[in-house]
């Protein structure tokens, strides 16, 4: 009888050890010899911009996750982003990556036209290229991940219409008139505004993309239209510092703006801005790296256009958004928001 028990116990033990053994490497992340190293060169617009630093965090995090998941590859991110926005520098860096025989490139284009030929050179050299945040649609890039700017504009307008009960004068703050993505957002606003017969869109106002110029334009328009009830902003420039804080009466004019960076959060807390549309910039990195691996390693069919959904930030989810920003690697978020 004892022999029977010993045999049965051994069978169970061996089976369990086998089952656990299959999963063990998954846990430890060991990389035996023969593992293919995959280098993804990441070229964002500017390494001084925290938005892109969070995208870098996302890319590194995803590379780590994929390397742990798939045993035959070891994915690393080659962060190769210029200090400041410079399309020509991006072109130079793409060409260097081609020389270095990188395995793939992910890029946010500072200027879509300038980068088209460099992207095509990379693809012709057998290096797949994906764009994120800012596309180069005429190039041979295999995929793009970013927002649908027209839909974003529509969302901004709909939220503003709700805030002003569907009636009154509104204006659009449009940023750089030459930026294609901003113009698409403006067109989205105009399209959505047409659905509200009692809302009068008094104009679209363009300006240099900085805090001072945007606030100056804003105040000028408010003087022209003292009965203005709302602002639809396709970028958050006036709220990129504290200058606006004492220049507008909280809640009198409703403001809905794109971007929801740490510096802007106080405007929501003080009811100067009612809704911010935040972009999950961390996902620029995670989704881009995942898509590249799907294409070059998993041989999966990849959608050429992958849409990023923006997140409306109000006083109701200010705490959640603050914690989310912190998780993505943003600094300088007031701690008081974490407990909200």
């Amino acid at each position: 009888m004892k022999i029977k028990y010993i045999i049965s116990f051994s069978v169970v033990l061996i089976s369990l050890v086998f089952l656990y053994g299959c999963g063990e490497d998954q846990e430890t992340g060991d990389k035996p010899a023969g593992v293919k190293k995959i280098v993804i060169t990441m070229i964002a617009k500017s390494s001084a911009n925290p938005v892109f630093l969070t995208a870098k965090n996302g890319a590194i995090s995803e590379a780590k996750r994929i390397s742990e998941k798939y045993k035959k590859i070891d994915v690393t991110i080659d962060w190769n982003t210029p200090e400041t926005e410079d399309a020509l520098e991006q072109v130079r860096r793409i060409r260097n990556a081609i020389k270095d025989k990188t395995d793939a490139i992910i890029v946010s284009c500072s200027d879509q036209d300038s980068l088209t030929s460099a992207i095509n050179e990379a693809v012709d050299a057998g290096i797949p290229v994906m764009t994120f945040d800012s596309d180069s649609p005429q190039s041979k890039r295999f995929a793009f991940y970013g927002p649908d700017d027209i839909a974003m504009g529509e969302s901004v307008m709909k939220r503003l219409a709700e805030l002003i009960d569907g009636r009154g004068k509104i204006a659009v703050l449009g940023g750089n008139i030459n930026a294609p993505n901003l113009r698409e957002r403006v067109s989205g606003i105009q399209k959505a505004a047409a659905e509200y017969p009692e809302i009068e869109l008094v104009g679209v106002y363009y300006h240099a993309e900085n805090e001072t110029e945007s606030i100056r334009e804003m105040l000028r328009v408010q003087e022209l239209y003292p009965d203005l009830k709302g602002w639809a902003m396709v970028g958050g420039w006036p709220t990129f510092g504290r200058e606006l804080m004492n220049k507008v009466e909280p809640g009198r004019i409703k403001i809905v703006a794109v971007d929801a960076l740490p510096v802007q959060l106080e405007y929501v807390e003080k009811n100067i801005v009612q809704v911010l549309f935040g972009q999950p910039t961390f996902k620029w990195g995670t989704v881009s790296v995942e898509t590249v691996i799907d294409k070059i390693y998993r041989d999966k069919k990849v959608n050429p256009i992958n849409r990023l959904n923006t997140i409306p930030v109000t006083i109701d989810n200010l705490g959640g958004w603050s914690r989310q920003l912190k998780a993505w690697g943003y600094q300088d978020i007031p701690e008081k928001y974490y407990g909200m």
């Binding site: 999950p280 997140i311 109701d316 989810n317 959640g320």
Partner: peptide, 12 residues
């Protein structure tokens, strides 16, 4: 799900 950590206070 798309809102990630930025759910509203009432949701949490």
């Amino acid at each position: 799900v798309d809102f990630g950590g930025a759910q509203s206070s009432s949701t949490f």
